[in-house]
Nucleic acid binder design. Structure first.
Length: 562
DNA sequence: CCTGATGCGTC
DNA sequence: GTCGGAC
DNA sequence: GTCCGACGACGCATCAGG
């Protein structure tokens, strides 16, 4: 029996989820919903709830975001509302703001009065049409589709559609809980669902298989060549001490390279390379795909590794240089002369017809060593903290990020009892920087100045020069405190950006200093986060731009310029 | 043909 | 990627 | 312990518009 689910029902479900705090309760609601809808509605509904419209194996992208959407809304409402003059700004996020606008612009339009209610499938087809529209004047086409869609929406539906399109549902329900919901909806063991998601590459597809064939179908889900699998993830550790406990036994410690994770599938002369989020980047890395034909000495393989940029002096190059190659599709030959890519493997998921993911890491690694002419990531196996520490130092000396620590007995899947892989990154000195501007936050940060422009005093120009922004590191209480302080020293407001007098000093941690064209200072902090507020320090006591530059230059004692 | 704005995907 | 908060 | 949503910098591709 065919089921037709309306868009409104999903939108209302999601509103319910937003109001529900208990995860268990959220999962129950979604599970019930999934069991009621039609098979062909599973992928659309899962996508709409999680805010990831197209599954990862699907190469479609919407190429639409707030910029274009706002143009559409403006055209839709036109001159009906004076409030339109003020763009969505400081207090509300875009979708809910639009909902309010629509409700005021078209007070007569109610859910019950629409001609024919929008169905999930119908709307999903429009999303697909938006994605498949490309080339000259494609933006106009996308806008036309959007316009037609929004005109048929009630305010509630419009808000939901906009959330879908910008991919930020903010209802506290993404992939993790969706796996639970699939498990509950179709009465399938949770571990089996998680495993199927890993192998199938997406929770929506796992949900569809589950609805179609239950446990039986998911048991059949197997790693298949050229279907990328979700990579195993690592937990953060602050120190090696945390991991090397007296009972831990032998652990595998690897260099952690600052590159991009790749999964390489090979069958004879056919090679495809997938990124961490499972997009196909084969075309950007032709030298690696060619080399893999011979350097993987098996007919068929799925292996994982890290690609990094390597300088002429064989030292690793800063991450920025790798990025020049990663998504490039034009002038690859030319760029490959400038940036040499190095592939270092660390795992094997499939070799010569054999699925390896249930084998212990130790075995996978041994087999990988046997079949690969590509170098493997440098590694030791030890139970001794002191040895691990020395190895960590060696890694950092060689210009790398730190180490990965892995349980050599672990299969390739997130373990039931906690994580099997850890990353330990080197820690850098911190900088005391001055906040010179701030931006209002969204969602749970609404009403707070929560994103801070960080600057260092430049003695040459006599000005504070920005070297990055951060929104990380403060507790809710501290956000309130800092918001109050900054409001007190505000000098002017420009859109969402509030300039303040350069008074408040914060201690900032970061992982690297990058060369920047965006900032006049020419430098930007990577992964900046606030360690603490330094009310005890005056701006005069903060670090200078000259010191920032010193640290930037020092990075190249271990890394390569060219 | 060039430039700037926008969106995406890597970390 | 990193962080704090909520479960 | 786990999940989620706050948002960072960068470089590339693509499109709009001159």
């Amino acid at each position: 029996m065919a089921v037709t689910t309306t868009l409104l029902r999903v939108a209302e479900l999601c509103e319910g989820l937003e109001r529900t705090r208990s995860r268990t309760e959220k999962i129950r609601k979604v599970a019930e919903f999934l069991s009621e809808i039609g098979e062909e509605e599973v992928i659309p509904v899962v996508g709409m709830i999680t805010g990831k419209i197209f599954p990862s194996y699907d190469r479609k992208v919407l190429d639409v975001s707030v910029g274009i959407l706002w143009d559409n809304v403006r055209a839709l409402i036109g001159s009906k509302i004076a409030a339109l003059e003020s763009e969505p700004g400081t207090s509300e996020d875009f979708p809910s703001y639009v909902r309010g606008l629509l409700a005021r612009a078209f007070p007569m339009r109610q859910a019950t009065l629409t001609e024919s209610p929008l169905s999930v499938l119908e709307v999903y087809k429009l999303y697909e049409a938006i994605a498949s529209s490309r080339g000259p004047s494609s933006r106009r086409k996308k806008s036309a589709i959007l316009d037609a869609l929004l005109r048929r929406c009630t305010p509630v539906e419009a808000e939901f559609v906009l959330k879908n399109l910008i991919g930020e549902m903010r209802i506290g329900f993404t992939e993790g809980l969706m796996e639970e919901a699939v498990s509950q909806a179709f009465n399938i063991d949770g571990d089996l669902v998680r495993r199927a998601v890993l192998v199938l590459g997406d929770v929506a597809l796992a949900g569809l298989e589950a609805k179609r064939g239950g446990t039986h179908a998911l048991l059949k889900a197997k790693l298949t060549l050229f279907h990328p699998v979700k990579p195993m993830l690592a937990a953060n550790a602050n120190s090696l001490e945390e991991i090397f406990t007296p009972t831990a036994g032998d652990l595998m410690v690897e260099y952690k390279l600052d590159g991009a994770r790749v999964q390489i599938h090979k069958d004879g002369d056919n090679v495809r390379i997938f990124s961490r989020r499972l997009t196909d980047i084969t075309d950007s890395l032709p030298e690696i795909s060619k080399e893999a034909i011979d350097s993987l000495k098996v007919n068929s393989a799925v292996v994982e590794g890290e690609v990094i940029a390597i300088g002429r002096d064989d030292k690793p190059m800063p991450f920025q240089h790798l990025m020049r190659r990663l998504t490039r599709v034009r002038e690859i030959e030319k760029e490959s002369q400038k940036v040499r890519m190095g592939l270092f493997l660390f795992d094997a998921l499939f070799l010569d017809g054999h699925i390896m993911i249930d084998e212990p890491l130790r075995t996978r690694r041994e087999r990988l060593q046997q079949v690969s002419r590509f170098p493997l990531v440098t590694e030791i196996v030890t139970s001794q903290l002191s040895e691990a520490k020395a190895f960590f130092e060696k890694s950092v000396e060689a210009g790398h990020e730190g180490v990965m620590v892995k349980n050599p007995n672990s299969p390739y899947t997130p373990g039931i009892r906690g994580k099997q892989w850890f990353k330990v990154k080197k820690t850098l000195e911190t900088l005391d920087l001055v906040i010179v501007a701030a931006e209002y936050g969204y969602g749970r940060r609404t009403g707070w100045l929560s994103d801070y422009h960080l600057a260092a005093y430049d003695s040459e120009s006599g000005r504070f020069m920005e070297v990055g922004k951060t929104f990380k590191g403060l507790t809710d209480e501290e956000f309130r405190q800092v918001t109050a302080i900054l409001k007190g020293t505000a000098t002017r407001t420009d859109g969402n950006v509030v300039s303040v007098q350069p008074r408040l000093v914060v201690e900032v941690a970061f992982n690297e200093i990058q060369k920047s064209t965006k900032y006049e200072s020419g430098m930007a902090l990577r992964f900046a986060r606030i360690k603490r507020i330094r009310l005890d320090k005056s701006p005069g006591e903060a670090d200078t731009l000259q010191r920032v530059r010193e640290i930037y230059e020092r990075q190249f004692s271990r890394k390569s310029y060219f």
